[in-house]
Design a protein around this nucleic acid. Structure first.
Lengths: 160, 160
DNA sequence: CTACGAGTTCAAGCCGGCTTGAGGTCAAGC
DNA sequence: GCTTGACCTCAAGCCGGCTTGAACTCGTAG
């Protein structure tokens, strides 16, 4: 297949030209030359873009993706890194699963307030949102310590 | 339990005071009064913050959370909405699972380039990476938004 | 040869979710 | 009565991932 101009790459991948330029600027993709001012891309860029999309869909930052794809040419990714990412994703998946269950349960649980329902509370805890322990209002004593310990670590509650 | 000042809420939940003020400004939480200038919070706010954390962990935007919690007082959420959210999460989970598998496989597949491996390609396909439709997945703040905002037509994306 | 349109560069803007900093107020302790 | 330090407000800033706009440069069709 012949070299493609930016419009063609965009058309074939759905990635806007502006994004392609941005990616090139960031070193995620490379053009193989110019015709006049216009960039020319090797068809291999499509594959690379698919990998980038995969990473993005997985919630990874462009910099991380760049690092995984980096040892450039062939998108040879480091095995340990890939495994680490997979594990990360695994945690995220577990957390999301717990949250999904919490939502599903809340949708049909008759408890007046979701937090009164043990099932819901359990899900919240699994979701990791329960740093806040959220126990029946009024019994927060034991929790205070651990919460305080974590306090400054992240500004909290945000994944990752 | 007595009313708490912002520092106490922060200590108990790990949520920074600045964030609490921000949440109040957005209408996600409410203080029940002031002592001098200082806000006073009802202990129930802890529970509400836990729900907010749950939502955030699930990747929902503050506005969405606000809408689910809204019919305020008791965090009575609309059932249909909860179910919809659960389904949304379900899709995200499936997608992430496929990506995780792709990563795990790539970590030990001998193919020179991942895309040469049918298993990997299949995972990529399942991941929907080609379609670039990334649903609100928690981990990254602005991500979901910007991706969503690209409602521009999405071309065909031939990855394989 | 000229005009056109697709491509280019660079700087600035946007969105969400907060954080930071300057400058102000006030209850409590000495 | 005065200081202290926690809390306040308001505006601006930051980050990631792009998008947008203005001003410009070319290859190509007529």
């Amino acid at each position: 297949m012949k070299d493609m101009d930016i419009a063609e790459v965009s058309r074939r991948t759905g990635v806007p030209a502006s994004t392609l330029r941005y990616y090139e600027e960031k070193g995620l993709i490379a053009s193989i030359g110019r015709r006049g001012l216009s960039r020319l891309f090797d068809p291999a860029v499509l594959e690379r873009l698919a990998l980038i999309a995969l990473g993005r869909a997985g919630g990874f930052a462009l910099d991380e993706i760049s690092a995984m794809l980096r040892p450039d040419g062939l998108p040879k990714m480091d095995r340990g890194r890939l495994d680490a990412k997979a594990n990360e994703l695994d945690h995220t998946i577990r957390r999301l699963t717990a949250i999904r269950e919490a939502l599903r349960h809340a949708a049909r649980c008759p408890a007046a307030r979701p937090m009164e329902c043990p099932t819901f509370r359990r899900a919240v805890r699994l979701a990791g949102a329960g740093r806040f322990e959220v126990a029946p209002i009024g019994s927060f004593k034991a929790e205070a310590v651990s919460v305080t310990r974590r306090k400054r670590e992240t500004g909290d509650v945000r994944l990752e």
